[in-house]
């Protein structure tokens, strides 16, 4: 009788475990940003309501090797974007220390990339970015550092990635910005934003990248 009971409790436990595991597999990340309902026609000519999500528009920046890069580099990939500057002594070192741990975790996965934009359009020319990234100790084919005009970078930060950036002469280093690490999916939609200065949020980012990769495989 005792043996029988054990078997039952084991079975229940197994069922629960499988159940939870299944739940986990079905998990999807939310989609952030503006959305609008658009009425279109499906292939049979019926009117259907479709949701159009905010996406990252195309861009053109110089990378650390002074090569022009566009969104094509990230085609079919998941990437993490952030805004920083090399002479920043406040939150940037922590952000990049933490982001580097994410980079190390996904180093061998070709579907994951990283994109850091400098907001210091005066000083952070590509050569400076190159030196910085070498000193940070990362591979530039996977983690890109880009330079653009103030208008382009700031507009993209505020309107599209929803990260506040600002030139501020009263700030210690001349600029102020938020430390969000923004997760972008293969359809250029925003799927998450994590405070790069907080290790627990960065851990969540790692989990969410895996979730997103699994979701996109389906």
């Amino acid at each position: 009788m005792i043996k029988f009971k054990n078997t039952i409790s084991f079975a229940v436990l197994l069922a629960l475990t499988i159940g939870f595991a299944a739940c986990n597999n079905n998990k999807k990340l939310p989609i952030y940003g503006q959305r609008e309902a658009v009425i279109t026609k499906d292939k049979d000519g019926n009117q259907v309501v479709d949701t159009v999500y905010q996406t990252i528009p195309n861009f053109s920046f110089l990378n650390q090797d002074s090569t022009i890069i566009t969104q094509d580099v990230f085609k079919g990939k998941v990437y993490v974007a952030d805004f920083f500057f090399t002479s920043c002594t406040t939150i940037c070192p922590t952000m990049h220390r933490n982001l580097k741990t994410v980079y190390e975790d996904f180093k061998s996965n070709p579907d994951v990339m990283f994109l850091s934009h400098t907001i210091d359009f005066k000083y952070d020319k590509p050569a400076v970015l190159k030196k910085y990234s070498q000193k940070l100790g990362i591979d530039n084919s996977k983690w890109l550092f880009v330079y653009g005009s103030k208008e382009d970078v700031y507009r993209l930060a505020e309107k599209n990635y929803l990260v506040a950036v600002e030139e501020d002469s009263t700030a210690r280093d001349g600029y102020i910005h938020q430390g969000w690490l923004v997760l972008i999916d293969k359809d250029k939609k925003m799927r998450g934003a994590y405070d790069g200065t907080k290790t627990e949020q960065v851990e969540q980012l790692k989990k969410d990248i895996s979730t997103l990769l699994a979701e996109e495989k389906d």
């Binding site: 939150i91 220390r97 580097k100 070498q134 940070l136």
Partner: peptide, 12 residues
């Protein structure tokens, strides 16, 4: 922020 929680520094 630069020298790290364990004094490990940050790359180069």
């Amino acid at each position: 922020n630069c020298h790290g929680e364990k004094g490990e520094g940050l790359g180069q």
